[in-house]
Write a protein that binds this DNA or RNA. Structure first.
Length: 472
RNA sequence: GGCGGCGUAGCCAAGAGGCUAAGGCGGAGGUCUGCAAAACCUCUAUUCAUCGGUUCGAGUCCGAUCGCCGCCUCCA
């Protein structure tokens, strides 16, 4: 079967073929580290995680680059306000960013290049653009002349003559030949303070767009397979990247562009400027489990806006509990016997359905449906006759396999406190003695401490926050 | 104003011309159970924003209308 992606450049679903067999090179626009990323930002990083994991699931080796923008207006302003050197301001934010990635089980990319460590490469690119006649100098700054790039606007659909002057007027705008031109290199100004690098054009710092062109080429080459980001990056950021890169190299920059839709709050885009944002840490403090958050962010199609709400997190929790029942059933598999054909068939169908869905533009809904269908099938099957050991193992193996894509099927198991285990044992004995007033008292007691007790056919389950233990 | 996306059950959400419109949450009834929960079974869209059109056949294609969102300024 073929992998299909919706390509923002072609504006249609397109069969994916990597440039090098078996290898996918992808560049994923990363955070600007002037403040902690909010959960809307992570929506995109989770989409990219799904893309990466899916490609690996389908047999590709993935080389992923995610940039860390550690120098631009906001990082400079923030460090100035706090009167600390730039790096001292960005370093802790970067550390927290990586912690949040881990919390959300986002797999690490191969490279996380920082803009400040690639200035010479950017200057090389700027020089190339000047030499090729696409850029010009004006008062120490270098601008890209967009009318020289005939296909400017091909990604966003913007028509050059339809571009309107924005509400905000750049201080340096009068220096440009054309207001639509964008900066490749910005001359040092008073507000930049300590921040600046020497260049043939004088002291200055890179424009925002040039870093992605320079760093993607450095780690992935002049041409690579996939470039991603949020839809808000399409214009002007990605449009400008294409212009710079293709004018500098003469090659087609990127083969496939994938963009994720926004996370919404009360019908509006979550954004720092609107102030309607939450960080991951804030959501955790509200009592949302990271597993549920990952579920919500991952199981909505990446081109569909998500409305994150308490309700959606609660629904996620319920859905996860249902998924967990498959693992519990599998754990119960015991005894001799081969895998029976009905069950083998269900697993095979689920895997096929899962794969077909996920390779079709990351069709996560269909992929999840495939898993829920297996859960139902397994319960129907095991209700008739208990699973044997091999069957339990087969289910767990399949679950592990799809979890390489999802990474929320196996919650972290916490050790239950000894006193809880003891209480559970006492309660089990009480139930055997049919002393139900005692057993119910213990159940209520544990519930008040945050441990929910459920008696199943297989034994007693203790649910504790995100962990879940089976006690026999 | 220009560009892009979306409108499918109470809620979330698949579907990309043709088997009975996936799946999840929630809800109703039943089986099981000391009770609770879980699990299982059954039910919960004659219809896909509206109106036209193309077609033997449309939720799916075309046109118009209404509504929502994003981008056009830094933004994931």
């Amino acid at each position: 079967m073929a992998i299909v992606f919706y390509d923002s450049l072609r504006k249609k679903r397109t069969k994916f073929e990597s440039m090098n067999p078996g290898i996918v090179k992808m560049y994923t626009c990363g955070p600007t580290v002037y403040a902690d990323a909010h959960i809307g930002n992570f929506r995109t990083y989770i989409f990219e995680d799904l893309l990466r994991r899916t490609l690996k699931f389908l047999g590709y080796k993935v080389i992923q680059v995610m940039n860390l923008t550690d120098v631009e207006d906001k990082t400079i302003n923030a460090s100035n306000e706090q009167r600390v050197p730039l790096q001292q301001h960005t370093a802790p934010i970067i550390n927290r960013f990586f912690e949040d990635l881990d919390t959300l089980k986002i797999e690490r990319a191969e490279y996380y290049p920082r803009a400040t460590e690639h200035i010479p490469l950017m200057l090389d690119l700027v020089k190339k653009l000047i030499d090729n006649g696409y850029a010009y100098e004006s008062e120490g700054s270098i601008y890209f002349r967009i009318e020289k790039f005939k296909s400017y606007g091909k990604l966003s659909g913007m028509k050059l003559d339809k571009l309107v002057r924005g509400a905000r007027v750049d201080a340096d705008e009068y220096e440009k030949d054309d207001f639509r031109d964008f900066a490749l290199w910005k001359a040092w100004s008073e507000e930049d303070g300590e921040v600046g690098w020497d260049s043939p054009y004088g002291r200055g710092r890179p424009g925002w767009h040039i870093e992605c062109s320079a760093m993607s080429m450095r780690y992935l080459g002049d041409e690579f397979d996939i470039h991603t980001g949020g839809v808000d990056n399409i214009f002007p950021h990605h449009e400008n990247e294409i212009a710079q890169s293709e004018c500098a190299t003469g090659n087609k920059f990127v083969q496939y562009w994938l963009h994720s839709a926004h996370l919404m709050v009360d019908g509006m885009k979550m954004s720092k400027s609107l102030g309607n944002f939450f960080t991951l840490r804030e959501l955790i403090a509200k009592g949302y489990s990271t597993r549920s958050i990952r579920y919500v962010l991952l199981t909505s199609h990446y081109r569909q806006q998500i409305n994150l709400s308490g309700e959606s997190v609660l629904a996620a929790k319920a859905a996860l509990e249902r998924l967990d029942t498959l693992r519990h059933s599998a754990d119960e598999g015991a005894g001799a016997g081969e895998i029976r054909s009905d069950l083998a068939k269900s697993i095979k169908e689920s895997e096929l359905h899962f794969t077909r869905s996920i390779e079709d533009d990351l069709g996560i809904s269909g992929a999840m449906a495939a898993l829920f269908e297996l859960v139902s099938a397994v319960h129907r099957f095991s209700n008739k006759s208990p699973l044997n050991q091999k069957e339990g193992e087969a289910l767990l193996n399949f679950w592990k396999k799809v979890d390489s894509v999802l990474s929320f099927l196996f919650p972290e198991q916490k050790e239950l406190p000894l006193e809880v285990l003891e209480s559970v044992q006492i309660r089990l004995k009480a139930r055997l003695d049919r002393d139900f007033s005692l057993s119910d008292k213990i159940r209520d007691d544990l519930a008040s401490k945050g441990f929910q007790i459920k008696d199943t056919r297989e034994g007693t389950i203790v649910i504790w926050v995100q962990g879940r233990e089976l006690v026999k």
